[in-house]
Design a protein around this nucleic acid. Structure first.
Lengths: 190, 190, 190, 190
DNA sequence: ATTTAATCGAGACGGTACGTCTCGTCTTACT
DNA sequence: AGTAAGACGAGACGTACCGTCTCGATTAAAT
C-alpha cells in the first residue's frame, strides 16, 4: 500500500552524478549538490544509497563502465584484436567526461576497497572472458602456445588502462605497439 | 631576519602524516588531526603546504616511496631480476602501513592530477632506469632482442603494482610467474 | 514543509548569552562558547542570527532590558518619582550581572551603530512615555511649567544611567539628589 | 649603551591608531594592522603597550581628547558658555573621524573598565574645573544660587555628550536649548 | 471511497573540518 | 638593548557538508 520508490528520482540522482563528474572531480561532488541538481531531497538519497560511493557505483553500472563495453568485435587476428582493445581504451580516455568517470572509479576504490573491488570485478570479468575466448581460438588455430595465461593478459591490460587513467595520460600509439608486440611474441606458438 | 622555519615542526607534520596513514585511510586524515598529532598549529601547516595532498607528497618523498627503493640488486640473470622486483613489490604491499601509503598515493593522484603526476614520475624514473640498465646488459649479452622497449616493461610493471595496491590484492606467485615468463619470451633474442 | 525552527535551541542560545555575560565581558563571549554552552551547533546560531551582537540584542529584548522595565510606579509627587527612577537604575547597576549586560549593550552599540540605535530606542521609548505622562499630570496640576521638555529630561536620565554603567560607577545618593533638585527647579511653574 | 626607545616608532604607532580609527571601528583595528601601517614590528608594540586599549589611550592623550580641549573661552554669561560647550561638542561629533574616536573611547571603556575610568577622568577633570570656575563667578555675581552643584552639571553634560557619541546622533540645537534652559532655571538665584 | 503507510520535497538539527585571521610570544639578524 | 621581520602555538571566525531528524503533502494498494 505504500507509495513505491520513485524511479524518476532514482534516475535523476544517477544522472546528476554523471553530470557532476563531467564537471568536477569525484571528491568535489557532494550529496547535497547531487540532491539539488537532481531536484531531490537529501533523505531520498540516503534512503536508497549508503554512501556517495554507492551512488557512483550504481551510476557506473547503469551507464557504461569505462572499459566493460569497450570489448571490441573479434576478428580472426589476435594481434589486431588486442591492439584494437588498447587503442579503444586509450581513445575513450581522451574524452574528458569518461576520463573523469574512470578516475572517480579509482578514487572510490582507493577509499572504499570493498565496493571498489566489486566494481573492478564487474569491469574485469567481461574483459577476461573476451580475452579467454579470443585466446582459445588462437590456441586452437595453433598460433598461440597452449599454456598462455589469458587472465594475466587481461589483468595486465586493465592495469595499464587504469594507471593511464589515473595519470590522465592515455597510452600513445607507440606504447600500444610495444606492449602488443611483446605480448604476441610472449605467447606465440613454437 | 625573522625566525627561520622550524625543522622540528616540519618533521613532526610529515611524521604525523605517516602515522595517520598507518591507522586510517587517506580520506580520513585531517589537517586538524595532523596538527594535533604533530603538536603544531594548523597555521603552521597551511603556511608551508598548500594542501593535505602536498603534505602527503613531501612525506612520501622524504620517507620511502612505496616502490622507488624497491629496486633490487642486479644479478646476471634478467629473468631472476624481473621476478625479484615484482615479488619485492608484492611483499611490500602485504604490509598494512605500506599498502595504505600506496593507496594514499593513488587517492591523491586521482584528486590532484598535477601533484600526482609529479610523484608518480619520481616513483617511475628509478624503475625505468633500472630496467633500462638491466636490459642493456642483457642485450649486450645477446640474450634479448635489441628493440626491446625498457620503458614499456617498466611502466607495465608499475601499472601492475599500482593496480594491485589499488585493489589491495597483492600479486600472487603464479601471476608473477606468468607475467615474467611472458615478458621474457616476448623480448628474447632469436 | 521542513522541520520548524527549534524553539528550545533558540531559548538555549539566548540563555547562554545571558549566562556568559554574567561571567565575562561581552568581548570575551564567543559564538563557539555560546554554542557549546547551549548544546547547539554553531550553524544553528549562524542560521538565525547574523552576528554575536544580534544574539545579544534578542537576548536583551527577550529578557529584561536594563532600564526599560525599571519604570517605577507613579505617585502624585513628580520629585519623588524622578528620584525613584534614578535610584532604581542605580540600584540595578549594583548587581554584577545586570551591570555587565548594560555594558554589553553599550559595547554592541559602539560596534554596531544600527542595531545599537534600535535597542536603545526600545529602551528609551517607555522611559520617555513615562516621563511624558508624569509631566503632563504635573503640568495639569499647575506644579510644572507648560513648556517643560519631557524628552529632554528622559534622555538626560538615560544618558546619566548609561554613562554610569559605562564607568561601572553607579550614581550616588547625593548626585541623584543634586540632579533631581536641579531638574525640579528647572521646570517648576512660576 | 642600550639603544633608547625609538620615538619615531612610538609616534608612528599612535598615528597609525588615529588613522585606523578614521577608517574603521575600534573593533576592526588590529595590532598587526597597526604594526604594518606604522612600519613597525609587532614586538615593538607589545614591548611598550600592554594592549590595543593602551595604545588608544595614549593616542587619545597625545592627540586631542574628544572633549577635553573643547573647553570654550569664558564670556561673562553662564548661559552662553554652557550653550557654547554643548554646541561645540555636538559640532565635533559631526566630524566622522572625531566621532569614531569618541566611540572608540566608549568601546575601550566598556571593555577595560580600569583604563576607561582613567581616560574618562582625564576627560572629565578639565570640564569639571571649567564649570566649577565658571559657576563660582556666576555665584559671586549673584546670578546663581550658592548651592549649585558644578560636578553634577559637568557630569551631566559629559554623559549627554558621551551618549550622543555612542548613538552617533549629535545633539540637536533644540535639545541643547532645552537642556541649558532647564539647567539655568534650575540653578538660578532666588 | 476511504483508510493506511511508505515515499517525497524541504530544510533544521548537532557535528566536524575547512581555510583564514589575529592574538601574544618567540627567535633571528641587523643596527 | 632595541628593532623589523616573521615563524610559532593557540584558538575563534564564518562556511560547507555530513548524516539524522522532523514536517506536511503525495500516492498507490488494501480496505
Amino acid at each position: 500500500m505504500p507509495r513505491p520508490r520513485s524511479e524518476k528520482a532514482r534516475r535523476a540522482v544517477l544522472e546528476a552524478m554523471r553530470t557532476a563528474l563531467a564537471e568536477d572531480s569525484y571528491a568535489a561532488v557532494t550529496i547535497e549538490g547531487l540532491a539539488a541538481e537532481a531536484g531531490v531531497s537529501k533523505q531520498t538519497i540516503y534512503r536508497w544509497w549508503p554512501s556517495k560511493a554507492a551512488v557512483l557505483g550504481e551510476a557506473l553500472l547503469e551507464g557504461e563502465l569505462p572499459g566493460a563495453d569497450a570489448v571490441v568485435p573479434m576478428t580472426d587476428d589476435l594481434d589486431t584484436d588486442l591492439r584494437a582493445w588498447l587503442t579503444a581504451m586509450s581513445a575513450r580516455q581522451s574524452d574528458g567526461a569518461t576520463l573523469e568517470i574512470a578516475r572517480a572509479l579509482i578514487a572510490v576504490t582507493a577509499t572504499d576497497a570493498e565496493l571498489g573491488a566489486q566494481l573492478n570485478e564487474r569491469l574485469a570479468a567481461p574483459v577476461r572472458d573476451w580475452v579467454t575466448e579470443r585466446l582459445a581460438a588462437a590456441i586452437a588455430a595453433g598460433e598461440v602456445r597452449a599454456d598462455a595465461d589469458a587472465d594475466a593478459i587481461a589483468d595486465q591490460f586493465i592495469a595499464l588502462a587504469s594507471y593511464a587513467a589515473l595519470l590522465g595520460q592515455p597510452l600513445g600509439e607507440q606504447r600500444v605497439d610495444a606492449i602488443v608486440r611483446m605480448v604476441m611474441r610472449g605467447i606465440a606458438a613454437h
